[in-house]
């Protein structure tokens, strides 16, 4: 099963990376953007997707400072052949 894990800084924790992006956008003419946060995306093929929450708690995220969301995508990723 192809699984995406979306990891976000927990609400209420200062996110200087998001703030920096938010401040940069108006300088490029993109007005009216607020609430910018920068997180991480982890994609994986898991034989047993029911174990992904456990993986998140133990390693993929730090639950004290990060929230995670698990999105099951369906068929595993096609093996990557050298191009």
């Amino acid at each position: 099963m192809r699984v995406q894990v979306l990891i976000r800084p927990k609400a209420g924790i200062l996110d200087p990376q998001g703030q920096t992006v938010e401040r940069a956008l108006p300088a490029l003419g993109f007005e009216g953007v607020t609430g910018v946060h920068v997180g991480r995306l982890i994609e994986l093929d898991a034989e047993d997707p029911s174990r992904v929450p456990e993986m998140c708690e133990a390693l993929l995220a730090n639950p004290l400072i990060e929230d995670y969301e698990i999105v099951e995508e369906g068929a595993p990723d096609a093996p990557r052949s050298p191009s």
């Binding site: 924790i13 200062l14 200087p16 990376q17 920096t20 730090n62 004290l64 400072i65």
Partner: peptide
């Protein structure tokens, strides 16, 4: 902290 022997966590410096 990651091992749970100490409370809390360390985040990137505010200045990045």
């Amino acid at each position: 902290c990651e091992a749970g022997l100490l409370p809390g966590a360390l985040l990137p410096n505010l200045s990045l």
